[in-house]
């Protein structure tokens, strides 16, 4: 039982990071109908910038301050990158056929990856051990303070985003743009500004996810955005792409499914499939969900974008 609980905890933690990254995919998709494949790489840049900032500041300031500053620097860099991408790569293509921005997104993704490889090198970069988080054991489940912090912060970010979109003027403008950009413009919504804001928020959350990955795994690599982006995109689709709550649910669910399948596939199939079939199983679940609910778990079936 304690092993099962531990697997759930592992899954939820992994899932909360997937969920944060998935938000970036789903928000942009909701508004533009565009899959921004470069989003995973923005997260990578966030992780890299954090490591560099920590490397510069280490030993000069208290640890809490260093982390806060590093996180802020990462957010600023990622937001600027998100805005630049939107302005340079996607805005000129807003009325182009749908394939054009998609291909551009893949190109931008490669551009960011290899620029990062030039700047930070192709090696795995380690996070220096800043502090030792206190470890707790509860019902046989091992968890440390850092992991609890990551999980709570992820939930807080998701909750505040949901509140922001639902209850603020800007949030309502985002919803209006999502429902129908042309009508929103007629109603006086500055849709161009709203789209830029969407990219900025997605990038900022991505930056925080990057910081979390640094802290959780203790390393970053120029290529890490690819697999992460793929998983987060899967999470967004699982939950219903374009739906903010769906991205959160999809992310957490994907994390748990991965964790449980890696943990139990081998024993359940009598060793026929090992833990290396984790991803196979995960995508099997995705296909199953999409067959029953083509628009994802929480997606609206009516969502039909221009």
């Amino acid at each position: 039982m304690d092993i099962f609980l531990q697997q759930m905890v592992n899954g939820l933690l992994l899932g909360s990071i997937y969920a944060l990254v998935a938000l970036g995919y789903t928000m942009v998709y909701g508004i533009l109908g565009l899959i921004n494949f470069a989003h995973g790489d923005i997260v990578m840049v966030g992780a890299m910038v954090t490591l560099s900032t920590i490397g510069v500041l280490e030993g000069h300031l208290p640890i809490g301050v260093i982390l806060l500053v590093a996180c802020l620097v990462a957010i600023v860099v990622c937001v600027l990158m998100g805005l630049l991408l939107e302005r340079v790569a996607y805005r000129p293509l807003r009325h182009a056929p749908r394939l054009a921005p998609l291909i551009t997104a893949i190109g931008v993704s490669l551009l960011i990856q290899y620029s990062a490889a030039l700047i930070w090198g192709k090696q795995y970069i380690a996070l220096p051990e800043l502090f030792k988080p206190s470890q707790y054991v509860w019902a046989g489940v091992e968890i440390n303070a850092l992991q609890i912090f990551i999980f709570v912060l992820a939930l807080l970010i998701m909750a505040s985003l949901a509140l922001f979109v639902k209850h603020t003027r800007l949030g309502r403008a985002m919803q209006a743009t999502e429902q129908n950009a042309d009508s929103a413009t007629l109603m006086g919504v500055n849709t161009t500004g709203v789209i830029a804001l969407t990219f900025a928020i997605g990038a900022a959350i991505g930056a925080v996810a990057g910081v979390m990955i640094d802290l959780y795994y203790g390393q970053a690599h120029y290529f890490m955005g690819f697999l992460l982006g793929l998983k987060a995109f899967t999470a967004a689709v699982l939950g219903g792409i374009g739906h903010i709550g769906g991205a959160m649910l999809g992310g957490l669910l994907l994390g748990v499914i991965e964790s449980l399948s890696a943990g139990y596939i081998g024993d359940l199939t009598g060793g026929l499939f090992g833990s290396n079939y984790r991803d196979v199983f995960t995508f099997f679940v995705l296909i199953g969900v999409l067959m029953l609910r083509p628009s994802g778990l929480l997606g609206r079936a009516t969502t039909e974008r221009a």
Binding site: L14, Y264, S275
Partner: peptide, 14 residues
């Protein structure tokens, strides 16, 4: 696992 993975928690928990 693979030579790209960084999360081994599920395997290790098992």
């Amino acid at each position: 696992t693979t030579d790209k993975d960084t999360d081994f928690k599920a395997i290790l928990t098992k």
